[in-house]
Amino acid sequence: MKGKRILSILIVLILLLVPITGVFASENYKTLKFSSKGNEVSRLQQKLQNYGYYTISIDGIYGKVTEKAVINFQKDNKLIIDGIAGKQTQTALYGKTTTVSRGTSSSRSSVKSYSDADLLWLARIIEAEASGEPYNGKVAVGNVILNRVNSKEFPNTIYGVIFEYYGSIPQFSPVAEGTIYNTPSQESINAAKDALNGARPVGNSTYFFNPAKAAGTWIVKNKTYVTKIGGHSFYA
């Protein structure tokens, strides 16, 4: 029995100590241009929205509005102006170099204000809770976690929020199911980065659930409905 207990402890330690550098490999940016569609475009729109270049709903479609937003970003950051989000434009946009936010006169540097561990755990909960959700829905889950971190009603760390229990019941089912330890996809990592860098698609929401999988009775009765993204309903 003692040997089995030691083995179990070792397995947990191995899961917790997965090399973070191996998870967060360098990004390979896909060139996006007019008529492109998908989660990569949604992420692009989200980032442009964060900086004030894109002001309508995120739809994952690279149309005229997205193209114009990219052109304005390229102009402000002294990049090649072609309306195409290639490697140079995306590298600048996603914080690899200094960028300028529209409507401000100050530069926005790529200084990272969160740890690799924060990014890892946020990406893991996003992957576990929203792997099948649209990109904006993934960012929304990260938004909720960070809102809890900043609320006096919840623990003040990402890890603490994820592993909070009410009695013997964890706040997030992936903790009980063990899926919280799965390796996050690059898309979940990207969504975590966007949330950590200020993306707030669901505003001040601190709760979410999937109506197709749970009734969410307490949340519906006690919290204010904010919006629905993909399969998740969000409440504040």
Score class of each variant (00 low, 15 high):
Thr21Cys: 02
Gly22Val: 13
Gly22Glu: 13
Val23Phe: 05
Ser26Leu: 09
Glu27His: 08
Tyr29Arg: 12
Lys30Pro: 14
Lys33Cys: 05
Phe34Thr: 10
Ser35Gln: 14
Ser36Gln: 09
Lys37Ala: 01
Lys37His: 07
Lys37Cys: 01
Gly38Lys: 15
Asn39Val: 03
Asn39Cys: 09
Val41Gly: 01
Val41His: 00
Val41Leu: 03
Ser42Val: 00
Ser42His: 01
Leu44Gly: 08
Gln46Leu: 09
Gln46Asn: 02
Lys47Asn: 08
Lys47Ala: 08
Leu48Ala: 11
Tyr51Ile: 11
Tyr51Gln: 13
Gly52Gln: 09
Tyr54Gly: 05
Tyr54Trp: 09
Asp59Gln: 02
Gly60Ile: 00
Gly60His: 06
Ile61His: 12
Gly63Tyr: 14
Gly63Leu: 09
Lys64Thr: 11
Val65Arg: 07
Thr66Asn: 07
Lys68Trp: 03
Lys68Ala: 03
Ile71Gly: 00
Asn72Ala: 06
Phe73Ser: 01
Gln74Tyr: 09
Gln74Asn: 08
Asp76His: 02
Asn77Glu: 12
Leu79Thr: 08
Leu79Gln: 11
Asp82Leu: 06
Asp82Trp: 02
Asp82Val: 03
Asp82Tyr: 06
Gly83Leu: 05
Gly83Asp: 04
Ile84Gln: 10
Lys87Arg: 15
Gln88Asn: 13
Gln88Phe: 10
Thr89Ala: 00
Gln90Arg: 13
Gln90Met: 15
Thr91Trp: 14
Ala92Val: 12
Ala92Leu: 13
Tyr94Ser: 05
Tyr94Asp: 09
Tyr94Arg: 02
Lys96Gly: 04
Thr97His: 02
Thr98Ser: 15
Thr98Lys: 13
Thr98Phe: 09
Thr98Pro: 15
Thr99Asn: 13
Thr99Lys: 12
Thr99Ile: 12
Thr99Asp: 07
Val100Tyr: 13
Ser101Leu: 10
Arg102Asn: 13
Thr104Trp: 08
Ser106Leu: 07
Ser107Met: 12
